[in-house]
């Protein structure tokens, strides 16, 4: 072998070689390729198909829509489904209503969740893990059954009405089921842990000495909170709000169990369009439009995940 040995550098007694053997680089490709391919096939490709079908016309056949290319090879794409969404009042109302219901519920989650997360972060360390477990526990029990629990509470002959009637506060039951109020309760209740967990993660790591210093210098506790703790916890507020808001906009189970006939949410409209009317192209158009509504918050969420990963 006649390869020239480089003179050893006194500052670096071991010459820097390729640190990783080639096997590692090749293994890398395979390790990445498997989940990558899976997600491309089962997550990204489906959206393209939904987009394609949203441009088709319904057909009484199997599958129930016209193909993208006709028998003569001509492109058969139509924007009729989108025009229909735009012109029929029902869909616009459903989109706006979903945004309103999800937005107010997110706010309610924040109002209930923030003091809880703050209280947990301030609790003695031994207690913190237990409180954390208590927040996570409902999240592990069935979502459907937790929504169902509210049916028994809010009904006309449910727990609350029975209690109030028994106490003589009211003399006929208050209508709570099948109203927007029930949906607010349902979403706030089901998604509260998603709000508390990111808030707690931020608040727990917050250095306490800043607030202490402010208070030593004569700052009122509420003012110290408003000028120091609150601004520093903004990343947690954003993370929690996105985790609640985005899935809540497309919620189906809660409006269909707790909501009334006039509390329209777009997830339920999509479901009915698909299962009730069997109109796949319109259901696809509803899905694409919902995705367009949510694309900004979803992008925000992804950027936040990326930043968290970089930190």
């Amino acid at each position: 072998m006649t390869t020239a040995q480089p003179t050893p550098d006194p500052r670096r007694p071991f010459p820097k070689t390729r640190r990783k053997p080639r096997f590692w680089t090749r293994g890398k490709g395979a390790v990445t390729a498997v989940p990558y391919f899976w997600l491309l096939l089962f997550f990204l490709l489906p959206f393209a198909i939904v987009l394609k079908i949203s441009l088709a016309e319904p057909l009484i056949a199997q599958p129930p829509f016209t193909p993208l290319f006709g028998p003569d090879g001509a492109l058969q794409a139509t924007l009729d489904n989108y025009r229909f969404l735009w012109e029929d009042h029902l869909y616009i109302v459903a989109y706006l209503n979903s945004l309103k219901l999800a937005g107010v519920s997110t706010l309610l989650c924040l109002l209930i969740g923030y003091p809880m997360a703050y209280g947990m972060a301030k609790a003695p360390p031994a207690l913190r893990n237990i409180l954390l477990l208590l927040v996570i526990l409902p999240f592990w029990t069935s979502f459907l059954l937790r929504v169902y629990a509210w049916m028994g509470i809010l009904r006309n002959n449910g727990l609350i009405n029975n209690l109030l009637l028994g106490l003589g506060v009211i003399d006929q039951p208050i209508q709570m089921m099948n109203t927007d109020f029930a949906i607010y309760i349902g979403i706030t209740y089901s998604y509260l842990p998603f709000m508390i967990l990111p808030l707690y993660a931020v608040l727990e790591r917050l250095p306490g000495d800043l607030v202490e210093a402010a208070q030593d210098l004569g700052c009122r506790p509420w003012k110290a909170f408003a000028t120091i703790t609150l601004p520093l916890s903004v990343p947690g507020i954003i993370a929690g709000s996105l985790l609640v808001f985005i899935p809540a906009v497309g919620e189906f189970v809660i409006p269909s169990l707790l909501g009334g006939p006039d509390s329209l949410m777009i997830g339920r409209v999509l479901w009915d369009e698909f299962f009730g009317n069997r109109d796949w192209p319109v259901a696809s158009a509803v899905a694409i439009a919902l995705l367009l509504v949510l694309v900004v918050p979803i992008m925000m969420f992804q950027r936040m995940q990326l930043r968290r990963e970089g930190a």
């Binding site: 997600l39 491309l40 997550f43 990204l44 489906p46 959206f47 198909i49 939904v50 996105l242 985790l243 985005i246 899935p247 906009v249 497309g250 919620e251 189906f252 997830g267 999509l270 479901w271 698909f274 259901a283 696809s284 899905a287 919902l290 995705l291 949510l294 918050p297 979803i298 969420f301 992804q302 995940q305 990326l306």
Partner: peptide, 16 residues
């Protein structure tokens, strides 16, 4: 593609 399924509304995932 890893982050999006965490928040994607279920009706969209199901239909697609």
């Amino acid at each position: 593609m890893i982050a999006a399924p965490l928040v994607m509304p279920e009706v969209i995932t199901g239909l697609s």
